[in-house]
Design a protein around this nucleic acid. Structure first.
Lengths: 251, 251
DNA sequence: CGGTTTTTTGAAAGGGCTCAAGATCCGTGG
DNA sequence: CCACGGATCTTGAGCCCTTTCAAAAAACCG
């Protein structure tokens, strides 16, 4: 939906931040050569399994989660089209979390070594990837703050605002509404709440007129009010490229 | 304490993971040219301020935290000697969190641009820095899981185990005890609990014989039991360097 | 259309918080 | 070296948000 047909989501996403050279695009396209389709609820990578590949999300939503001994689950990250899955996990050979499809969709797997080429050949692209990993961490920081110090309403509001902000990065035309293919149970696993309580809180938000949900599409009617509730500031969801190495540096 | 005298903490830390070339060391030493001392409770960088520098921790403990509108605080990361502060925040020009000294200590500031040189000149070092950022994210993922799905006892146990694991990275001789220069209030801000409740939980852990605290030094008497409580697995706290670019690739 | 998944609703229990106040520790100045 | 004031640690009691458990309604899928 956000990406049109064959165009590379990855190129589209990275192209938002810096002007890509033909060579950069070639490097990136190499990562997306093959696609793999998944059905909703399918397991992409098992928790604790070896990490062979990273993925670029082409279509659909995915998420990473870990399960505790007692069966409780924590969703670590929700991935939307254009996102890179597993970038931070290349550091270890065994995955700390599993990856699953939240909706039907397709991924483009590529080997860890794919990054090596980029590191070796394009310092500028390297800086960008490094920054994107940093951005992901900022998202995580926000969520940590939510789970640590915010009430259920704030956590849900934040999650919705984050998702919207991230969808807008990949598709500037995203308004205030988007398809939300996530179970309330899953939202709970992401926010540290019970699916049941997520339900009650969302009803509450609807009653206040802050959100509307219909046919799987959610609309944030009053973004400002939600930001207030979630103590949310999306100015961080952009990247400072001023310090990046310049184009022609490589080779 | 962990680093002896003039030796570079940074070189010591990175040297754990890969064999550094003379050139790599030179690049790194350039980052640590100047030092700056801080007293306990001092503010290193204000929340919302411009991000000019990153830091290498030479001595002492530091932490990053953000404050919400109502005054509640969340500690995002605790830094020990050898750590890099702010690596993930280079992505934006304004900081999302403030940095403070948890004990007396000293930092070596360096400009964002310092990374550019590394990216341009040493793909291998680049891969390592990228991996360390990833490792930090794994630490965060664990904490997210703790705040989302674990009881107070588990959160505290996890924090202690994490700290120990990270101290061991920089100093392999660290046994089961370390100086813990953190207020219970601060531990609370890190785990999403009240200082008061942290107090009660730690007493509980002491009563169970899992930890002992004396003169600011904490000892984990039964690491296995703590791991059980915190669902902790430190096998992730190491780095897979197998995919790194090889030494001589640069220039 | 039947089974499974997801959403709703209600009532009761619990973990952690708040508020308040006393005890300790510690750095600083005289 | 001692005294003082602020920071930190303790302890107690009542309250509140969220969870649990159970079960019904609704939506979805093949």
């Amino acid at each position: 939906m956000t990406a049109q047909g064959d165009a590379s989501c990855l190129v589209a996403k990275l192209g938002h931040y810096i002007k890509l050279t033909a060579r950069d695009e070639a490097l990136l396209h190499r990562l997306e050569e093959q696609g793999r389709d998944y059905r909703r609820r399918a397991c992409v990578r098992r928790e604790g399994g070896r990490i062979e590949d990273l993925f670029v999300v082409r279509t659909g939503w995915f998420y990473s989660a870990s399960t505790m001994a007692d069966g409780r689950r924590q969703v670590h990250h929700i991935y939307v089209p254009g996102d890179l899955i597993g970038t931070h996990e290349i550091v270890c050979s065994v995955s700390t979390s599993g990856v699953y499809a939240a909706s039907d969709g397709s991924l483009c797997p590529f080997e860890k070594a794919g990054l090596r080429e980029i590191f070796a050949e394009s310092p500028r692209l390297t800086a960008l990837l490094y920054s994107i990993a940093g951005l992901e961490q900022i998202v995580l920081d926000d969520r940590l703050r939510a789970l640590g110090r915010m009430t259920a309403e704030g956590r849900i509001a934040q999650l919705l605002l984050q998702l919207l902000a991230r969808l807008r990065i990949n598709d500037r035309d995203t308004g205030n509404r988007f398809r939300l293919p996530l179970t309330q149970e899953l939202l709970g696993d992401a926010t540290g709440l019970t699916g049941i309580h997520v339900n009650r809180v969302m009803q509450q938000l609807k009653k206040k007129g802050l959100i509307v949900q219909k046919d799987g599409v959610i609309e944030l009617k009053d973004e400002d009010a939600l930001c207030e509730i979630a103590d949310f500031d999306n100015r961080y969801y952009d990247i400072d490229t001023s310090w990046f190495p310049h184009q022609a540096m490589a080779v």
